[in-house]
Nucleic acid binder design. Sequence first.
DNA 1: TAATAAGTTGACACTTTGGTCAGGTTTTGA
DNA 2: TCAAAACCTGACCAAAGTGTCAACTTATTA
Lengths: 222, 222
Amino acid sequence: MPKQPSTKALKNAGEIDEKIRARNIREILKAATEIFSRKGFDGARIAEIAEASGLPKANVYYYFASKEEIYRAVIEHLIEGWDDAFAHISADREPQDAIRSYIAAKLSYTRRNVIESRLFANEIIRGAQFLSRKDRQHMRTVTDEKVKVIEDWIAAGKLLPVDPRHLFIMLWSATQFYADFEPLACDALHTTKLKSLDYSVAAETISETVLRGLLPVGQMGG
Amino acid sequence: MPKQPSTKALKNAGEIDEKIRARNIREILKAATEIFSRKGFDGARIAEIAEASGLPKANVYYYFASKEEIYRAVIEHLIEGWDDAFAHISADREPQDAIRSYIAAKLSYTRRNVIESRLFANEIIRGAQFLSRKDRQHMRTVTDEKVKVIEDWIAAGKLLPVDPRHLFIMLWSATQFYADFEPLACDALHTTKLKSLDYSVAAETISETVLRGLLPVGQMGG
DNA sequence: TAATAAGTTGACACTTTGGTCAGGTTTTGA
DNA sequence: TCAAAACCTGACCAAAGTGTCAACTTATTA
């Protein structure tokens, strides 16, 4: 089974002539992400993924041994961007700015990556069966780190006492909702498609409500 | 096709001898709810639903013409309990009590009905394709009604200004999260299964945060 | 440039699964 | 009591879907 990447080094600094293997795998994963997101694991058809990636089905099986292997690869890929928005929750910032930025970043991310967001949500609802131990551990570690930041802010009197873990759950759920449950959000907001303004108002509402609830009296800006 | 319910009236006031048709349909829908929730529409197998409801597959098809018909029936059933918690948001209550009760009721409902909750979430993520026009209209109507209540509270100076629709989205997402995304919640809370205490702290955190953020200064109880 | 590795692909094997059906049994109602 | 309606079910089918394979072409490298 000649499925290992060749050991040949890159000839060019630029990736102008991307290697066949890399390109095909990338195309397959891209198509798979889209289709798994729309149809779920069971609903997705390999033939459809193949067509969407411009390859015959047998060629897809040349790179991946099974449907499950493709799915795992896709999921693993998703996790990579999971904690980007979390970077805003950093000890050296003022909680007000940090939380506001986090909410804005998370909403913006889910808006720009609806497909990935839904796929992730779907995987979790199904019991996170294909999320590797390593990935889950990573998520836990990052969360713990940020919990610590919140706790320090509380200890420093910069935030009213709150359970940081439940706080993160609140923020996570609120910011995911618009992308993951778009039909419900649309119904609630009397629109047929979420627009830029809807996301702005969402960010504003979440930020204001949460911050007014967490900042000591007299510390609300803007 | 003798698939209409018989016109015969109930002989007994009590439903002791439940009619065959009613019982079987109930069993099928019960099993189907469970299995659709765990596996999704495509992942669910009619044979499995049949087995779980104690009927041979062909018998399931005696009552339902297709998989889709079963699924639709299940979804329609779900909607029935959708607005129960919303009853707490009523104009004649104080916003503080009303919102607190709503959060508690919603959390309690999702906890007691995890299966239904996940199935519903799943259906929405997939684009709410099988939610009937009527059901969506119903949800919109109920929401509008409650939006009005919030607006009146704001007008009466009992709540700080907030977009009621986005507020509902916040509450809805936060209260759904624990049941729908249990694996994530467990990771975040460092536990393997959500316990009663976790739900209490969740209710407390959501209520306190939101209420402190919405009530005019000096109106927080507890 | 020749030999080996990597990539390609149509056709096919095999399994699963939604759905059907003919002929059976039980229930109902007059 | 008996005919009609309702209910039941094993056996079957066609379609769809995953995964395989042998033969082929293209790329690499010594």
